[in-house]
Design a binder for these strands. Structure first.
Lengths: 226, 226
DNA sequence: CCCGCATGGATTGTCTGACAATCTGACAAG
DNA sequence: CTTGTCAGATTGTCAGACAATCCATGCGGG
């Protein structure tokens, strides 16, 4: 196992199965708002639409269900998950735990991870300035939040943050199906990072907590849920 | 929606599909150490063993993969996941974030959740005293830790803690396949709860952090991983 | 008119059988 | 020692089928 043992370590070939592509297409359709929440995902219809067999569709659906994007009820089929007020509140509360943990570790965190936060912030702000699509803006916005979790240095926490972000994207897809504009919160986030750069961890922490609470309330209101 | 609107709220009928039962049986076999980590899970062999068809096995396997209990490599099949040192360390670090968040909220938490912590502790200690099987002891031990996350009041954080506990149970199943005795850590946990009852949140927090670090080191060493 | 019940269509859950694509391992050739 | 080739095993995907279950509609009785 010398230094030359794996000269092609960076190479990586995508092994995309039909199931993966089907699941990806469904994800896209959901996030793009083409599939309203609650829409039943009929297996035969999807099979003929996607040009694949029913077992393949079933597997793709089980993947979506595992991700929380869809819900399966026995003998009643799979349908696009419907965001509830309590879910949104809970997701934001949970995000506060994860992202707060990251923020509190700002000083101890790897420089790599701190840099990642700056990078995602830049990506977000520049996307805002260039007037990206609302999907893109959401994507970058949420990527920034996940990068905060990255400060903990724990891949699993990041994975969990990702899972929860999926639920938020689902909810946001419903919001934007109605009003097709994403919030410009670039300044807010820049302020948060500035607090971190100034080593005001508690300030940043409190700032973040308020930001997440506001976000939850806003989404719930936009969805018209109690 | 009066007070009598749902008189049978506690009733719940198991809608167990064949896939669910197959997945459950596989889970049991893994946690009981019957399936060593790395063991390939051949579809045809499982199908004939379980007395179900191959598609059913495939679906059960996709469920296990989604849970992280097994790993799928394209065209090479599914095999029982192998715990790595870095994974164990990461899981414990992530648990520290989740459980620590719960512990810090001890005062603000719902009395229900505080009570749940006491209950799971009692269940653990009494199981220890009555000399339960090592599977049962682990189960209760980990249930206690999850109940700490419950103090946050966030179902999602609890769900995530559960997911991570699954990984630990997988690792512990490997450990116990060798030495079949679970640690008696009832006293340790009782001490932790006592600190909480005494309102020494910081003490409890530090205590928990150390406990989790020790646990990680111990598991890694028991697994013989670097 | 409203309520309980049967009937039929639609959909899912599961099985059987099949075939192509791909991986593994061994063996021969350079 | 590396490369080419081949057979066997396994997975990925498909087609077709059937029973079980759910839904809605309509019918008869109170």
């Amino acid at each position: 196992m010398g230094p030359m043992s794996e000269p092609f370590a960076t190479l990586h070939l995508e092994h995309s199965s039909t199931v993966d592509r089907a699941a990806e297409e469904l994800r896209r359709a959901i996030f793009d708002g083409e599939l309203e929440s609650g829409t039943p995902l009929r297996e035969v219809a999807l099979a003929s639409s996607l040009g694949v067999s029913r077992p393949t569709v079933r597997e793709a659906l089980t993947v979506l269900v595992a991700e929380g994007l869809a819900t399966r009820e026995p003998h009643r089929g799979v349908s696009v998950s419907a965001p509830e007020a309590s879910s949104v509140r809970d997701v934001c509360a949970a995000r506060w735990v994860l992202e707060g943990a990251g923020v509190r570790r700002w000083r101890e965190a790897d420089e790599t991870h701190r840099q990642a936060v700056r990078t995602t912030l830049t990506a977000y702000t520049s996307a805002v300035r260039q007037g990206g699509s609302y999907q893109e803006l959401n994507e970058r916005h949420l990527a920034f939040h996940v990068s905060l979790v990255g400060l903990t240095g724990s891949p699993r926490l990041v994975a969990m943050a990702d899972e929860m972000v999926v639920e938020l994207k689902l909810a946001l897809a419903q919001v934007e199906r109605l009003r097709r504009n994403a919030h410009d919160e670039a300044d807010t986030h820049a302020a948060l990072v500035q607090l971190l750069e100034d080593d005001d961890i508690d300030g940043a922490s409190a700032f973040l907590e308020k930001h997440l609470e506001d976000a939850a309330a806003e989404i719930i209101e936009a969805l018209g849920l109690s």
